[in-house]
Design a binder for these strands. Structure first.
Lengths: 191, 191
DNA sequence: GTCTATATACAGATAGAC
DNA sequence: GTCTATCTGTATATAGAC
């Protein structure tokens, strides 16, 4: 691998594990087996390196999902599965972004618009699938679609955060998903 | 206020807003209007100051709640209200702890056992209230108590985290709570 | 207990040889 | 592109006067 990429890879790993302030360029240089000066030659400043790392990390967040031909309950189940799996697989970077969002200062602006935009798209999909199911008679009309969608998403996020905090074991991921489906999808399903 | 307390107060505010690495003792000294040397005289090292701040911050987490005389659905609603309000009111320190938990390294061990213990107690209370309600006929027996409790708590946490990320407006707190009750408590209520 | 002055280390960043 | 050597600032921490 070329030095530039090696630096990006190492910096990404260290930033996400230790944060921006907690990671020195000396450490990056040491672990990437290059000189500090080379980092500055390639990236100008620590801040620029960081932004480059973030940009790369965000790329896989543009997730598209094909829900054609599925009943609304199945589509909702698929959305839930997909979201949970995506976050689990990218947990290192999701933790990192969440950590940044939690800090009052360091509002890193435009960069995170991408993350929030993808998240907004997902939220809309969930709400729309429930609404459509109610119109087409596959979901009960007794619930308010928007409220129910909000709780589904909150439950997902809550399960995921709990996994972050308690050093998630693989098995529990399956359980978490099953509980959400059992509690929030099955009871409003009609078909 | 005495200098020692002034230092603790200032350090607490700055640590929780900027993190450990992001807060220098020069800044603490400046804002607390004392010399840096005095901080070392009182706390020996930055690490010790930090631990002292954390210990103080954790104190109000030992929350007790009286549920005597309430029906199980009302007790569950009260638990939900109380948890949400507590986290909202202590959001600064909760954000801070969550941020620490998200970091791979810096597992600050024993100190956080207290936070996790209180959290575990709350989880148990929720599960037990649901079980008891099922035994006494105030909650539907069609759901699995443990699973339902897990989803209630996850939804709570998810709503709270979302509030952290999107700079919560007050009004939405009420909405969030109402949605959880409407979606996860009312449907299994019998009385 | 509180201060000023200082020691020591390491951070981000630059100069210039190869 | 990559290095060694170095500059400059600021961090944690100490010494010692009051």
């Amino acid at each position: 691998m070329e030095a530039r990429d090696k630096i990006l890879e190492t910096a990404g790993r260290l930033f996400s594990a230790q944060g921006y302030d907690g990671t020195s360029l000396s450490q990056v240089a040491r672990e990437a087996k290059v000189s500090k000066a080379l980092i500055f030659w390639h990236f100008e400043t620590k801040e620029h390196l960081f932004r480059e790392v973030v940009s790369r990390t965000i790329e896989p967040y543009a997730m598209k999902l094909d829900l054609e031909g599925l009943s609304e309950p199945d589509a909702l189940a698929k959305l839930v599965d997909h979201y949970y799996q995506f976050v689990s697989r990218n947990s290192s970077s999701v933790r990192f972004f969440l950590g940044l969002f939690l800090r009052r200062d360091s509002r890193p602006e435009e960069m995170f618009a991408q993350v929030l935009e993808q998240y907004g798209l997902f939220r809309n999909q969930v709400a729309q699938v429930i609404e459509r199911g109610q119109q087409r008679g596959t979901f009960s009309s007794r619930v308010r679609a928007a409220a129910h969608a909000g709780v589904v998403i909150a439950a997902l996020n809550g399960m995921l955060v709990e996994g972050f905090v308690s050093e998630q074991r693989e098995r529990e991921a399956e359980t978490a998903i099953a509980e959400i489906k059992e509690t929030l999808i099955d009871p409003i399903r009609i078909s």
